[in-house]
Write a protein that binds this DNA or RNA. Sequence first.
DNA 1: ATGAAAGCGCTAACAA
DNA 2: TTGTTAGCGCTTTCAT
Lengths: 335, 335
Amino acid sequence: MSNMQDIADKAGVSRATVSRVLSDHPSVKAATRKKVLHWVKELGYEPNLIAQSLAGNSTNIIGVIVPEIAYPFFSEIIEAIESQAFYEGYSVIICNTNRSLEKEKNILTGLNKRKVDGIIAVPVSTEFSLNSYRKLNIPVTMITKKVEGFHSIYISHYRGGELMAKHFLSVGFRKIGYIGPVKKSTSAIKFQGLRDYLLANGIELTDVIECDPPANMNATGVSENVKNYILVRGIQSEVLLANDDISACEAISALQMQGISVPHDIAVAGFDNSLLAREMNPKLTSLAQPLEMIGKKAVEVLLDQINYHTQPQMYEMESRVVIRESTVSWNVQQS
Amino acid sequence: MSNMQDIADKAGVSRATVSRVLSDHPSVKAATRKKVLHWVKELGYEPNLIAQSLAGNSTNIIGVIVPEIAYPFFSEIIEAIESQAFYEGYSVIICNTNRSLEKEKNILTGLNKRKVDGIIAVPVSTEFSLNSYRKLNIPVTMITKKVEGFHSIYISHYRGGELMAKHFLSVGFRKIGYIGPVKKSTSAIKFQGLRDYLLANGIELTDVIECDPPANMNATGVSENVKNYILVRGIQSEVLLANDDISACEAISALQMQGISVPHDIAVAGFDNSLLAREMNPKLTSLAQPLEMIGKKAVEVLLDQINYHTQPQMYEMESRVVIRESTVSWNVQQS
DNA sequence: ATGAAAGCGCTAACAA
DNA sequence: TTGTTAGCGCTTTCAT
């Protein structure tokens, strides 16, 4: 593997000049530049980014921290981040917190030692994680959650709940239920949006099936909860909004097992518009978060922060309802 | 941010000694070690990994190359890789080829310049990618495909096809069909396994719906193909094996639209045992590739290669059929 | 327009 | 057991 000195020797110039050529410094005679570039190509020279990082002081690496890489919602964001980062000449180190504060801390010190230029993160907790991030003293952009004091990119879950409510009403539903966390969790906010919008239209939620926020991809609590609810109280609603697509699928499964068919007997909508929503049977109406845009924007905001030290800012992204079989064929059958 | 010299000064020793303490070199007097560690803690010193990399010569970074990060199959492997890598003290840079040979090349030179210690890759092509990997001269472990000349970790698709065939027979199916690529593609091999096993049992495939291998997650060609096939020839089979879970979902959708209900009228099985299989309605019988094990093994094999320069070896992993509603309730109804 | 030289923060012979 | 010294490969002032 050749290094800068080799090029310098061959071209009969100093390393400094080679460096200038490679970084497009203006003050290099055309002839010299040509000579250098010739040997760069001839020797197949590739700069050593480690050395560059040590000498200059940017690694062109950004760290990405998520609770669960394989959760479709996150993996799609990761893909968008990687894509934009690659485009901007950055590499991406991904880290999985597994929702553990301790692991998150380890990850942060790791990234710090690696001298990453910045971090895009879904913090484990908006309460207990933040100090670790602050102490880092490197640019951080938070995603999917609104975090005071940090650049944050997220969608309004409240607005999402409202949009779903609006859709339900427009389809003609009047008895509406909800499945998911009701307090504390970020995702519970969509519950409020849903409820408030309906209340403003004189409608109260018919069923509220409270579930913990999804702990991870394999959590199957929802199905149990729905089943119990059905057995104990029965379901009055014409449509149910589930906290996310997985919950929606779980709910559908539980409903079917109790002999309630979706969307024939009851409609169900999800949240996230993940692969599941697209492929589920019936195909799920779901609130689409602009995941690609979140990822892309996150990189842009982070790079701005890195390069221009911008002040923390909130970016609320627009979401939209993607309408599919799980809520509309019900309507069709009614008409 | 303090550096090694700061520690050395405070502790009244040389940088070399500090270095020794930090790397657990045996020949350091206990008292000295204690003194140094005291100041390390006191100053909150954290070694600069960039400098370490430049001086030593390992970055403790491994590159991971996949065709599509957000494809559940890959994202689950990535998660497993990250987990094991983290455990071993390595960071993971992930890269998305998007199935483009050109992007793959760019990624490889990028990782090379970054001096990653090794690469775990799903090559874009087992035909045209390999040279780029070879020229790299750094350890590479291939996953999900058997690639001559490289450490490879994969499951036998052939065996997978056989296992499915066996399952079908045991459930009592005799008319069996297949949906997916028939030639060329890696995944077409499962077709052969299925067919051969059945032939050995005196059974010929009833329907073969040829489809291109899935180009990416959003490809919906399968649904179209199935629909056309139904319209043109009709389906005779009692059960269909789809090339992957997504195809299975697509097929189910197409079947339902033609008034054929799954699993009531026909059974369907998938391949990969992804989230989709678990959540789909009906829940999908699917061939589970041990994704977590593939990821973990990949890291282990790569590290062996890095540390002991092991010779290329093939690791064929065991897969298993996960039986769910989509194939068994059919049987129940028959009995 | 170019070169000389001093680092960036660490590791690892080699000496002592 | 510890210190000295010479790099690792590059960038970047400061001269010239």
